[in-house]
């Protein structure tokens, strides 16, 4: 899953960060003003989408026992976007719960390696930013937008900040997550997995944001992010994802 670009939109719809990760210069036909327009458009689409959420689903959410309701609990997928010490890529570590056991073995064997890893994680302990499933705060809005050209994933934080990842991969025949009860189970699974990976990834970007943007004394809230460290860490994580 290659991330083409990443956008951060503040709660009032302003674009505070954007970055393209593909190296083809010809693709960058949008100028900065276009990005601003894109961000505010997405912001309003997001707001409209939350209004469009069918009443039935909203009511269903409260019913825990209903098997058909949308599960907003996102499972933890180990090492998304992390450079793993012993060279295994994301796909290996994602299968099954071996992330935990492998984690223990690295802990006991090479502590120096872990130390260097820890430096990268800022104030987060361990070798991954988080290790537990989390509940998405994005309950009624847009979570995924699929086209023939790209897929877009949105992660919304509690404070209304939105992290957007535009991926070059295309979900086959998927109509998005909102009607995944009708599509065949295999496609549903792959689509679901992709959303989960994206949510895990974007949540980690949020973690980086909380370290390198929120703890920067020279950053003023809601303003464009100019932190070079944030830039570097995000780039690192996107590169690991490839």
């Amino acid at each position: 899953m290659a991330i083409q670009s990443l956008l951060v939109i503040n709660k009032s719809g302003g674009l505070i960060y954007h970055r393209n990760f593909d190296n083809d210069s010809k693709n960058n036909s949008l100028n900065s003003n276009d990005y601003l327009i894109l961000a505010s458009t997405l912001h309003s689409v997001f707001a409209i989408a939350s209004q469009l959420t069918p009443k039935a689903i909203q009511i269903n959410q409260n019913n825990v026992n209903n098997p058909n309701n949308l599960d907003y609990k996102i499972p933890y997928i180990p090492y998304v976007g992390m450079s793993t010490g012993n060279g295994s890529d994301n796909y290996n570590s994602r299968n099954g719960g071996d992330g935990y056991s492998r984690n223990d073995s690295t802990n006991s064997t090479n502590s120096s390696n872990k130390n260097s890893k820890l430096n990268k994680l800022g104030s987060f302990k361990g070798d991954d930013y988080f290790k537990e499933p989390f509940v998405s705060w994005n309950k009624s809005g847009l979570r995924q937008l699929s086209t023939d050209q790209f897929t877009m994933f949105i992660y919304q934080t509690m404070t209304g900040l939105k992290f957007l990842a535009i991926s070059s991969s295309v979900v086959p025949h998927s109509q998005g997550i909102s009607d995944n009860t009708q599509v065949p189970s295999t496609i549903e699974k792959s689509s679901n997995l992709q959303v989960q990976i994206a949510d895990n990834f974007l949540r980690k970007v949020y973690c980086i944001y909380s370290d390198y943007v929120m703890k920067d004394p020279f950053y003023s809230l809601e303003m464009p992010i100019k932190s070079e460290l944030f830039d570097r860490k995000v780039k690192q994580m996107v590169d690991n994802l490839l």
């Binding site: 430096n119 370290d211 390198y212 920067d216 004394p217 020279f218 070079e228 460290l229």
Partner: peptide, 16 residues
């Protein structure tokens, strides 16, 4: 000091 604990989140500003 490689870690510079206090200022590690502050980008590009030596004065801290």
């Amino acid at each position: 000091d490689h870690e510079h604990m206090l200022t590690q989140f502050i980008s590009n500003n030596n004065s801290c």
